[in-house]
Structures are given as structure tokens and as C-alpha cells.
Amino acid sequence: MRILHTSDWHIGRTFHGTSTMDALAEVLGAVTVQVREHDVDVVLVAGDVFDSATPSGAAYTLLGDALVALHETGARVIVTSGNHDSAARLGFQARLLRDGIHVLTDPRAIGEPVTVADADGPVHFYGIPYLEPAIVRQHWPEATLRTQAQTMAHAMELVRDGMRQHAGRSVAIAHCFAAGVEATAGLEREVRQGGLDVVPLSVFDGPDYVALGHIHGRQQLSERVRYAGAPLHYSFGEQHKPRGSWLVELDADGFASAEWLDLPVPRRLVTLTGTLDEILSADNVVAHADDWVCAIYTDTLPQTEPMRRLRERYPHCAMVQHQPAATSAADVRSYSERLRTAATDTDRIEAFLEHVRAGHGPTEREAELIREVLDDAVRAEALV
């Protein structure tokens, strides 16, 4: 059996104020092509289908179009809810969907699999929606569910109970932050990296494959436990992470292989660092005029209207930051230390300018103006 593992579509998310709907529609169209080309039997979407608990009408339309297109390839589609989704809104029409499209959002049904058979027998798919302990503990009052780890461990016990009742191979689908995940800037916006939110890898023992969502970059925690990541780059912190999905194959004995399938990137993301003039150089413009650009300019002083100047050359410049290059002196001595050792008002002003300019003190002209102002102040005090 061939399974395509995707996650974190985030339909409706914007990228620095720009809609991503058209780009996502293009990428999901490429997913459909891959499903057909690789004779995929089951497509999994491991949570965060929408970016908001209250999706727009256009977001529902895009989801509907994507699910119908995938279904028309002949594949079964299994969708679970993530922390960005409203389980009620995502799952309200589950009973109305055509045969072969399954939306699993009810925590009380975790142990009840969706079963798909192939020549080697049945494969049971156990969908675990995102489980917020404070919300779902009402369903299992006998269990202690204070943390995400405890809650996911309980859910996986329900999965293993289901596995004991349903002979055959098994796949679990979940949405959480698992231990062993690389902590990068591409982590979810709301992920808290304290111990309470981390689910140990051992929790997922049992199924032949575990399809995880929640992390936006491709990650392999073990041969049979993986994250597929998001189909689009949703932040500059993700720009170097590939976009795609896992093509997982099960044979008669269980997990057989997993192959990464790259997806197209509608518009590349690039971070350009240097002085503003360097970033605006002709070579950079030729190479990146059509890219999403994050510009980090290192001039000592803030430049006038940097975003306007950047967008004249880079129409898709989404972000600009001023980060003056730090000097070794600024790295060694803290602002408070420089203030403590300042003997004069001139020293204090220079310390302040070094602090706010990442180690760069006043220019020669600024130093002259500082001396003039301080001399005028001294003369005024002498006349009082």
C-alpha cells in the first residue's frame, strides 16, 4: 500500500499581509499530480488544515476543491484536525462527504479506525485530532491529563487497544510537538518549548507508521515516525527547508520504505544581508527580483525609507530589518558596564549611541555637535 503523508496546509494564512491562497492551490494541484503518478492509495493530512478556527468561505472552497481532486485520483483521503483548526467546523460535514474522504475530529473515536484493504490485507488508520488537555479530559475522567505528553500517551493507548481488536497493519496520524524535533525558527508560532508540551518518542510505539503534523519542516524522528512539514514556506525561518511530502510504502509485514517527494515552490524566499547599497546592487536584483525578500541592512545608521527603496527593486520585499554590524568592544562590554565607567556626559552619550547602534559610536560630525551642546550647557550653568 502506498500512502502520501502531508500536513499543515494552513489554508487562509497570509504571508506578511499577502494571501497565500493562489500559491497553495498551485501546490495542492501538484500534490494531486503526484498522487496520480505514484498510484497512491491513501492521502493523509495530519492536522492544521485551516489556519484559523473561523475560516473564510474561500478557504472552504479551496479545501473542497483539493479534497475532490485527490478523491478523483482513486485515492482515499484521511484528514485530522490540528490546533489551528476548529474541530467542530472542520468536522461538521464529515457525514456528508462522499465515500473515500474521511475527516476525523472526534477524540472519542480515536480507537475506531478507518480501514483500507490491499492485496496484503487490511490497514487500519487511527486519526488523533489535536488534543488540548483542559478540553478533552472530560472524555476520560479516569485518566490524569494535565500535559500534552500525558494526553497523547492516553490517546496512543486507545490506538493500541484498537490495534488489539483489529488485526492487520496500522497507521496513526497525530498533531503534536514530539521530543527529538529540531528546534528551529520554523517551529509553530504558538509552540511552547517547555517540557510540558513535549511528547516522548516512545509514546508512538506500536503502529507500523506514525504520520505527524505541527512542525513546518521535514523531520524524521525514527524510521517509522516522521513529520512532513507544510506545503508552503510560511516564514523566512523556513526558507531553507524543502517542501514536499512522504511517500510511504507498507508491505505485508508493515513499514517497507519512505521516499521524499519535493513540491514546487511558487515563489522562493531569500534573506539578503549587507549594507543597503549592497543589497540594492544590480547583481542581487537580477538574481532575486522575483523572490520574497527579507532585507537585513548593516549600515551604521538607519537609512531613509528603506522599504520604499527596496520595493522599487524588489516588488516582493516583505521584511526589512536594521542590524548594524557589532564591534568587538560592544560584544565585550555591556551597556550598564559602559555607563558605570563613564566619567563625563560625553562618555555617557557615546555609550548610549554604541548601545543603540550595536557598538558604533558617534560619527565625527556628531561628536562635534555633542561637544558644542555640552559646552553651551556648561556656559549656561556658569551664568546662573
Rank of each mutant, 00 (worst) to 15 (best):
P315L: 06
P362A: 03
T341R: 07
R311D: 08
R313C: 14
S328T: 12
E312W: 10
R309D: 06
H322Q: 08
Y314W: 04
A325W: 10
E368V: 05
I349F: 06
A326S: 13
E337F: 02
T304A: 11
D283Q: 08
H288W: 06
G361V: 07
L369F: 11
E366A: 13
M307T: 08
S328E: 12
T363K: 00
A343V: 01
E305L: 06
V356Q: 04
D283K: 02
V320A: 10
D347N: 07
R309E: 09
L280K: 04
Q323H: 11
L339A: 04
A295G: 08
E350T: 14
V332H: 10
R348L: 13
D277W: 04
L269S: 06
L272V: 12
E337N: 04
I279N: 01
D299A: 03
E350F: 05
L369N: 00
P362Y: 00
E312D: 15
V270E: 13
C317E: 00
G361A: 12
E354F: 12
P315H: 03
Y335S: 08
S334Y: 09
H322G: 09
D347L: 11
E350R: 12
H322C: 02
A295H: 07
S334P: 01
H355T: 11
E312A: 15
V270R: 14
E368H: 07
E337D: 10
S334T: 15
L353E: 01
C294G: 01
P362M: 05
C317I: 15
E278N: 09
E368S: 06
G274V: 07
T273L: 09
A343R: 14
E366Y: 06
D277Y: 03
R357F: 07
G359I: 00
A351V: 15
L280M: 08
R357S: 03
A287N: 13
P324D: 06
R357H: 08
A289R: 09
P324V: 15
Y297N: 01
P302Y: 05
E305M: 05
G274I: 09
T346F: 04
T363I: 01
E368A: 12
T344G: 02
V293C: 08
I296R: 15
H355A: 15
H316E: 04
L353Q: 03
L353G: 03
A367C: 11
P306N: 06
D345E: 09
H288C: 03
M307Q: 09
G359Y: 02
T327S: 11
T341N: 05
V356T: 06
A358K: 01
D277V: 12
T363S: 10
D299F: 01
L276D: 05
L353T: 04
W292I: 12
D347K: 11
T300L: 00
E305H: 13
A358W: 07
R333L: 15
T341V: 10
L280C: 11
V293S: 02
P306L: 07
T304S: 03
D331W: 15
R340G: 12
T273P: 01
C317T: 15
A295V: 14
P324K: 15
H360F: 01
L276Y: 02
T298Q: 08
Y297Q: 07
A325I: 11
T327M: 02
T298N: 04
E305R: 10
E278W: 05
R313W: 10
L276N: 01
T344R: 13
E350M: 12
M319K: 11
D283A: 14
H360T: 08
T327G: 12
E368P: 00
P362T: 00
R340D: 14
T304H: 04
Q321V: 15
A329I: 14
M319G: 03
